[in-house]
Design a protein around this nucleic acid. Structure first.
Lengths: 223, 223
DNA sequence: ATTTCCAAAAATTTCGAAATTTTTTGGAAT
DNA sequence: ATTCCAAAAAATTTCGAAATTTTTGGAAAT
């Protein structure tokens, strides 16, 4: 294998990407020695990167016991989903109130990109490169949706939660792309552009409920 | 000065405490060399602790430029407040729905401790030891209030936000203890125990609005 | 007086190895 | 066969110093 010299931020980005696209399997122990070899740097540099990933909660750190990738856990996915629903409903509702033409335009653009990728996703459903593109486009769409809410902490906490959600979602043994997804995104943007707050909240809940413990049967966080 | 040997977690706790009680002034540069001297350990150990504090956002890290304590910033306090209001209103409302007798009992206990401390706070308003006790008791009260919401992520994100809020609040040049505080806490617990969701949300907003940009004049996040 | 440049000083980051701790292994006693 | 314990192996954490980068301070030029 070819060793290339990486800078610390590059190592961080590379590992982050691998974690949220499940190229590093659930619960894998992340040994400094192995990674040190892969990235051609000292154990200390790896340790530093792993600490940063632990702060993003993509990696679990235990004193004197090292680091491991977050294990796959349906319960965790459920809780990440309820929290995402809360933040996105609030962020979207406020954006609908406050957002202007610029927001609408950015939202259209993000949705256009996303639906273009979703349109040809069955051709290469499990291609890692496509998965990466789709993942970025999906995040951009949801982030743009809440981007006019005026609360930087809502956005940064949403972002952190989204990454953890994505990591869990992709790690689930029965993971697969749902074609309904594209329709659900359409419902969300339709309601948002129509300035329909309750409708948008409902569409967000409908989009995410399949990740809840009971598949959303209880309607617990429905608006 | 006496040098005592600290373990890494002790260094973390000590610095964390100093940061949220403003014993380390706003924007202070945190040099490895200086702290390394204070805690009698290597620069690397300090670096590790500072990374963890940066992940709690009490400390700002900039590549090649080191660490500094978060600067005092009214705008930041405003945004932390709106986010706290969102999480606490949601967490309290859900706890009111789901919480049982155990929750009520814990809430009473936390409020009792808090009001006992608040009762004698003017005697020693700026005593650091009292401030520390009060700060812990206030956090415990608010955390207990939302503790029956069933969402571990809501709680952990609230906790992170609270610490940042406390750091900002205490750093503000005009910081002082408000006697109304005790009454506001009373209103919150009264509404919570009466299972009055809208009332509790209103009380939470009233409790925090003085930290908003305009002192809450616009009523933006009122329920 | 202001700006630009350069060298010295100071701070941060990275390194390789030593010290510590956890985990595994293998043998003796129950 | 099972449990317990000690020794070996493996992994993590800490260290002191070297390498890199930023900051500082003063001299030269505008």
């Amino acid at each position: 294998m070819l060793k290339t010299k990486f800078t610390t931020p590059q190592i961080y980005n590379d590992l982050h990407m691998q974690l949220v696209t499940a190229q590093i399997p659930q619960g894998t122990k992340l040994r400094s020695e192995h990674l040190r070899d892969r990235y051609d740097c000292s154990a200390n540099t790896i340790r530093e990167v792993l600490f940063r990933l632990a702060s993003a909660e993509l990696v679990v750190f235990e004193e004197q016991r090292g680091f491991r990738a977050q294990p796959a856990d349906r319960e965790r996915l459920h809780h990440l989903t309820t929290f995402r629903v809360l933040l996105e409903q609030e962020g979207a509702a406020t954006s609908i109130q406050k957002g202007g033409l610029e927001w609408e335009a950015q939202l259209s653009a993000a949705h256009h990109k996303l639906s273009h990728i979703e349109g040809r996703i069955d051709e290469a459903r499990f291609d890692v490169a496509v998965l990466r593109l789709w993942s970025l486009a999906e995040l951009e769409f949801h982030d743009t949706l809440i981007s006019a809410c005026g609360s930087p902490f809502l956005r940064s906490n949403y972002r952190r939660t989204y990454d953890q959600f994505r990591q869990q979602k992709i790690m689930q043994p029965d993971y697969g792309f749902h074609p309904e997804n594209a329709l659900e995104h359409q419902s969300i943007i339709d309601a948002a552009l129509a300035r329909d707050e309750p409708g948008c909240k409902r569409a967000i809940y409908e989009h995410m409920k399949r990740n809840l413990r009971d598949g959303g049967a209880s309607g617990e966080h429905a608006p």
